[in-house]
Design a protein around this nucleic acid. Structure first.
Lengths: 292, 292
DNA sequence: CAACCTTTGTGCAAATTTGAACATGTCTCG
DNA sequence: CGAGACATGTTCAAATTTGCACAAAGGTTG
């Protein structure tokens, strides 16, 4: 029972009773309809129709096919409606992923988004492994750092995450604040485990602070935060994160050169869907409001 | 949502996750699969799959299609099984038609047929109008007289219906029996309303009996029977029918030249079905047994 | 890390499907 | 009864679909 188009043709013939009528409805030539029926009957080995000068009347097999194909036709129409409608509708799952360190900033935004579009279910994935857009693991990803250049991904700049240098009260009480580059060697800095880190503030760190002064290294920004809070030294933190900890002392305020750009990334196949567009528009609007 | 073949293609891709796999299952080239998907998505205006180097993964729309098409595939397999199975099975309706005058002889045979094939429902149509095979009004027709030459019908000889001349006791008591052709003008005969009747005994009647002697004419054989029984004159009746009326006097016993041939007629589209073949075989076997 | 395998994607030619025209037959209506 | 409308069915050319060859790119494995 392969070749579903022939079933569809037979269905119209059974429904209308004539080859000509079916051909008109299907938008094909009546010769095509005849050939479809002949092929289908030949493959089944059973006559579906009885031919006569006034048209085709369905045999029992033909009537059976009529019932089944009728249901199929209904199913397909509904499916088509759902699929096309889904294009206009913001509903179903919307999977967003980012590195874990951004979750504090993003969760409130996603919650607000969900309240505006109640039919959508937001799934916010953060984890140690990178969720990949190209395998359909997420609709939207928020990536930090250098501009992602994956093919098939459409990426647009969002905002920058401002980074400053912070230390705990305890640290400052013991070591004081550096007054200039000449003091750096007398301080303890928290750096990245990866010596080649491209984060702009770590590039600055490599270029301005002697390696010996970097006495604590972590892979993870969460670990850096914890280290700073524990008084391990001077470390770089997002300004928004730092504000949440009144214990911290701002060693250096955020600089533009330290800012880490954030990117909104979507897969081409999903980028044009209204659901994704709704989220992107929502995020941008939210950031614009925050700026003002 | 026209072109069901593309839905079938998309279904296999969604099910297997790769274009290549779907192409193999479908028995087509993978380029064809890609083109089907592209066409379908283009028409729907929604992406069904997300493309990546390891294959295609279904979007929500694609998964919706998967569910619907899965059900459709099941339905079509079952349909195919039913249709093909029906070919081997003697079940469902079996519509037989004949002129009403043969019903006495045929009903017992059809009843026996139904007992042998309990899953079949026999519908025996007799009526004033001719039920036509070419419009699917019946599977098998029993026709009397000259050989039917309708195209698209397959006709085979069955047996002959023997006709003799009969009259009622009352008639014979009053008029006696004709001793030879010279007596015909002194008798009353029952003839056909149609002066051109091709029934062999009526041809004989026209050629051998003066028109004035034919004093009662009917269109219908049932009416002829009634007329004979009522004493209207000498009329022609089927031998089997006459035997059921002991009041009748056999004026002339059945002659071969008076016999009316009977034909089993089926439409070509139905002739090869096992159901029809079962009935035809049954009828022939029954007649052969009767002969012995 | 390099070779190999699997996957998608794209021109171009072959094969298949489709469409137009015509033949034929039946039914209907005046 | 005869003309017209409408149905199926067949033949041949055109159009579309399909298959093949090849390219490119990510994934896998030794």
């Amino acid at each position: 029972m392969e070749n579903w188009d022939e079933i569809r043709t037979a269905y119209q013939v059974a429904r209308l009773g004539t080859v000509s009528g079916a051909a008109e409805v299907l938008g094909v030539h009546h010769a095509t309809v005849i050939r479809h029926i002949d092929a289908l009957e030949g493959r089944l080995g059973v006559k579906l129709f009885q031919r006569h000068a006034r048209g085709y009347t369905a045999t029992e097999a033909g009537e059976d096919l009529l019932r089944v194909a009728q249901a199929t036709d209904d199913q397909f129409s509904q499916l088509s409606g759902r699929i096309k409608g889904r294009g206009m509708d913001v509903s179903g799952d919307l999977v967003v992923t980012s590195v874990a360190s951004l979750s504090q900033a993003f969760t409130p935004m996603l919650v607000a988004f969900q309240r505006q579009y109640p039919k959508v279910t937001v799934r916010y994935l953060t984890g140690d492994r990178l969720f990949r857009l190209e395998y359909g693991e997420a609709h939207v990803a928020i990536r930090a750092g250098t501009i992602p250049d994956q093919p098939d991904n459409v990426v647009q700049p969002m905002t920058s995450s401002c980074f400053g240098a912070y230390a705990s009260h305890e640290y400052v009480a013991e070591y004081g604040l550096p007054q200039g580059p000449q003091d750096y060697s007398k301080h303890r800095f928290i750096g990245p485990d990866n010596e080649d880190s491209r984060a702009p503030f770590y590039v600055w760190l490599r270029e301005n602070v002697p390696t010996e002064a970097i006495r604590f290294r972590c892979t993870d920004s969460e670990a850096v935060n914890a280290a700073v809070l524990s008084g391990a030294g001077i470390g770089f933190m997002g300004a928004a994160e730092a504000e949440r900890h009144p214990d911290l002392v701002e060693v250096y305020p955020p600089r533009d050169e330290w800012a880490v750009p954030l990117w909104l990334v979507t897969h081409v196949d999903l980028h044009r869907t209204t659901k994704v567009q709704a989220l992107l528009a929502f995020i941008k609007k939210r950031f614009n409001e925050d700026k003002q």
